[in-house]
């Protein structure tokens, strides 16, 4: 039989446009568009991409319920045997959309769904338990490997073939444990692991502890009228000309700028260099990303103490989690030394 494949992609891979078209509404096209051609080829005559559902990443992120509903209707109408979404690599909003539509289609239509993402994509933590996510590289340079990885998993699912462990099949583990009889008892295996650990040789746990990257909330500000508040952004707002050459994406640095004399962000003094959203509005008035103008008003009205003189900024798109955490630690140290009481961090 020929499997009916539906493919979900964003505005970029559909060739509609980049960030300026990120609000593109859900659209259905017949057959394959963009990377779907290769998926069909990899099915080697056993499957056909019957339709491609396209949605802008911004639209999906901002109107998730409407977008999901519209895309699901389109997918349903195509009577698919399987849905592929992406690959999204390390694009956060695209990963979120791919994971969300794959999870929804799997649940509503009862069909197998497969996406592809870089392990650090936020879509992974949100959706890896609800859809198969093939592990890809962090950018579209890895397309040639990502599509076979996704397709192989999809074909296995369609044919009902036995799915091996995540680390062997190349997908992100779904938190599912299968029971089987082992020739050695648990006690023996545990002692073997312990001995291996003591020797410093490699061993693999049979039960991975989840990584909780959550912390208890800091205590609240007691007296707002005396509080010094720092402004921080990952929205790529920098002094005009980007003097410290902060990267437009995958940032490896952040900037610290004195705003003590600044009342208002204007196109003359500040700009956005962020490579992950449409900068049209931010470049007309950077206050729509970093709200300095109204902060100054509220400061003068005495609603809070004062704005911390230093403003910290970077671009949060494709930025490695390890880097973002390092920026956070370094900025945190400085705020602590300066006796800052609270911070407002804006992200795009």
């Amino acid at each position: 039989m020929t499997y009916r494949i539906v493919h979900y992609i964003n505005q970029f891979y559909a060739g509609i446009g980049g960030e300026e078209m990120a609000d593109h509404r859900p659209e259905l096209r017949e057959g394959f568009v963009g990377p779907g051609m290769q998926i069909e080829k990899l099915f080697n005559g056993e499957g056909r991409v019957v339709g491609t559902v396209i949605c802008g990443d911004g639209y999906y992120g901002e109107n998730t319920e409407e977008a999901r509903k519209a895309c699901l209707e389109m997918i349903k109408g195509l009577k698919p045997d399987i849905l592929f979404a992406g690959p999204a690599f390390n694009a956060g909003r695209y990963g979120f959309a791919c994971g969300d539509i794959a999870a929804a289609a799997g649940e509503e239509l009862g069909i197998p769904t497969v996406s592809g993402m870089y392990p650090e994509n936020p879509g992974v933590e949100l959706y890896s338990k609800k859809t198969y996510i093939a592990i890809t590289s962090d950018s579209a340079r890895g397309m040639a490997k990502a599509l076979p990885a996704m397709t192989n998993i999809g074909i296995k699912l369609l044919k009902g073939e036995k799915m091996g462990p995540a680390r062997l099949e190349g997908y992100i583990h779904r938190g599912i444990r299968k029971s089987f009889f082992h020739e050695k008892s648990g006690a023996e295996r545990a002692v073997e692991m312990l001995l291996a650990k003591l020797k410093g040789s490699e061993f693999r746990t049979e039960y991975e502890m989840p990584v909780f990257n959550k912390i208890p909330p800091a205590p609240p500000v007691k007296d707002l009228s005396k509080a010094t508040i720092a402004l921080i952004s990952s929205g790529g707002i920098v002094p005009k000309g980007n003097p410290d050459h902060i990267r437009v994406s995958s940032a490896e640095s952040y900037g610290a700028y004195d705003i003590s004399e600044l009342r208002n962000m204007t196109p003359e003094n500040y700009e956005s260099i962020h490579g992950g959203y449409d900068r049209e509005w931010a470049n007309v008035d950077p206050d729509v990303v970093l709200p300095l103008d109204v902060m100054r008003e509220l400061e003068e009205e005495g609603v809070f103490g004062k704005i911390h003189p230093i403003f910290y900024t970077t671009t949060g798109t494709g930025t490695a989690v390890a880097n973002a955490e390092r920026f956070g630690r370094e900025i945190g140290e400085e705020l602590k030394k300066a006796g800052v009481d609270a911070a407002i961090l804006t992200s795009t």
Partner: peptide, 15 residues
Amino acid sequence: MTREIERVAGIPVVQ
């Protein structure tokens, strides 16, 4: 970034 600032500085960070 938000979480690390809050953790290290011990202050509330509103995102």
